[in-house]
Structures are given as structure tokens and as C-alpha cells.
């Protein structure tokens, strides 16, 4: 694990996102399910981290809570130095606008907007001017230059996911959350998206946290956090598809 040069030029192993004793319970009484049962984990800035686990392990819930999309029953979540648990809906919305980027599995784009409008949507909502140079960099790296005027329905699945990646990064968020970003893609398109996410961390200094159940996708990450039954079940540094697969097997997935 080596220190990386972040955008601001500071060197170190800053914590981008941290969760402390997170508990999330769905339902009540007998049917209550503890989706997260005291999870404490931190994610380093400038790193690509994958959250893995079998279905029902709570990995999506963890991501939702970390991103401020869902509220927690107890415990804390920090993004940077700011605690986000207990923030109002409005404050959380502002936080998402300014400091968080998202790439979802599907339905990432608004069908009524062009690719370019989709990329810039978050910035516009925040009332911020896009950094043209940064925008160009992202668009060129993702090979979207000649697709900017197209509507989502005119784009392939891979192209759509790349537009989503561009949108997630264009605001230079503190952290990008990716929820199964390759789940709907063929392997080639999937690999492109994962390459880009890894490149954005290594070259552009971004922080990416990705939820996936695909060991191959997880192997692109710097670190894999394993989750089972709402508990932290270990982690793997510099994972390979094989090491992830065997770790998952040990979890009984």
C-alpha cells in the first residue's frame, strides 16, 4: 500500500469515508432483520475499495448508509471529517450534490437529457460551473466526445455506464460510490468501465467505493472489504479474482 498524490497535493493516507458501529434494522419484532449489525470500517482517500459479500450480506445497505441515501439506526458515518448521521434531508442532499458521485447498476441516466446534460446534471443542480478542462479530460478518457449530443436510448449499455462514470467524476467528489456498475454489461464493456474507475483512482486521485458480487470486478480494486450477515468478515489487499473467490468460498457464499 503506497501513499498517493491526491488532487490537492497532500500526501498521506487520509480517510475518505468511515463507519463506526453501524446498525441498520429492517422491519420490526419477529420479522426484524439486522442488515448491518455493528459494522465499523474506514475507506482511504485515493483508493479503489470493493465491498463484497453474498446476497443479503448487507453490502448494498452499507453503501446506501455510507452515501447518505439511507438513515441508520445507530452508529456513525463520516465523509471526510464531517459526520453525516443526523443530517437533515436537505443537508444530505447538498452533501450528495457537492461531495459524492454515484454510478448505479442500471437506470443511471435521465432519458430526457442528452449525454452531456446528464454528465453536467449534478453540477447544475448545485449551481456550479463545470471546470471545462476537467470535463474535457474525463470525456476524452471515456471516449464520449462524439456521443455527447446523444440521448441515452441512442447509446449502448457500455456507453451509458461511461456517461454515468463521467457524471460521477465531473464534480470532483470526495468519493464515488459505484453500485454493481458492471452488473448489466457484457464482459468487454464491463472491463472498460472498471479500467476507467481504476484509472480515475490511480491517475486522477479519486476515491472509489464499489459494491459488487463479481470477484473479477473486485480484482480491479486496491482492497476488498468482505461482508457477511451484516458483519465485517475480513478484507483483502491487492486482490486477484482467485483470492477473492476463495475468500468468498470461505464465507460460504
Amino acid at each position: 500500500m503506497s501513499a498517493v498524490v491526491s488532487e490537492t497535493g497532500t500526501i498521506g493516507t487520509r480517510t475518505a469515508v468511515a463507519a463506526g458501529s453501524l446498525v441498520k434494522v429492517y422491519g420490526k419484532g419477529d420479522t426484524a432483520v439486522r442488515a448491518l449489525d455493528g459494522v465499523s470500517v474506514s475507506f482511504e482517500a485515493g483508493k479503489f475499495t470493493a465491498i463484497m459479500g453474498p446476497s443479503g450480506s448487507g453490502k448494498s445497505t452499507l453503501m446506501h448508509c455510507l452515501a447518505g441515501l439511507d438513515d441508520v439506526d445507530s452508529g456513525t458515518v463520516h465523509i471526510g471529517s464531517q459526520e453525516i448521521t443526523g443530517l437533515s434531508d436537505k443537508e444530505l442532499t447538498k452533501l450528495r450534490r457537492d461531495r459524492v458521485g454515484f454510478v448505479f447498476q442500471a437506470f443511471n441516466l435521465l432519458p430526457t437529457l442528452t449525454a452531456q446534460q446528464n454528465v453536467l446534471l449534478g453540477l447544475e443542480l448545485a449551481g456550479r460551473k463545470p471546470d471545462q478542462e476537467w470535463f474535457d479530460t474525463i470525456v476524452d478518457v471515456l471516449g464520449l466526445r462524439d456521443r455527447l449530443r446523444h440521448k441515452p436510448t441512442e447509446l449502448s449499455g457500455g456507453q451509458q455506464q461511461r456517461v454515468a462514470c463521467a457524471r460521477a467524476l465531473v464534480s470532483r467528489p470526495d468519493v464515488v460510490f459505484a453500485d454493481e456498475p458492471t452488473g448489466n454489461l457484457d464482459s468487454r464493456s464491463g472491463a472498460e468501465v472498471l479500467d476507467f474507475l481504476r484509472m480515475s483512482v490511480r491517475k486522477l486521485g479519486q476515491t472509489v467505493i464499489m459494491v459488487t458480487h463479481d470477484p473479477n470486478a473486485a480484482s480491479y480494486a486496491d482492497r476488498v472489504v468482505l461482508l457477511a450477515d451484516g458483519h465485517l468478515a475480513g478484507e483483502i489487499h491487492n486482490p486477484t479474482a482467485d483470492s477473492v473467490l476463495s475468500a468468498l468460498k470461505n464465507l460460504g457464499a
Binding site: 452515501a67 454515484f102 443542480l125
Partner: peptide, 16 residues
């Protein structure tokens, strides 16, 4: 519904 959720995730407030 999903589209609205996406917009909310991207930073559209309830009011907006």
C-alpha cells in the same frame, strides 16, 4: 420512481 430516486441521489432536494 427510479428516475426520481436517481435525481434525488444526484442532489435534487425534495422541494426541487
Amino acid at each position: 420512481t427510479r428516475e426520481s430516486a436517481l435525481l434525488r441521489a444526484l442532489g435534487l432536494t425534495r422541494g426541487q
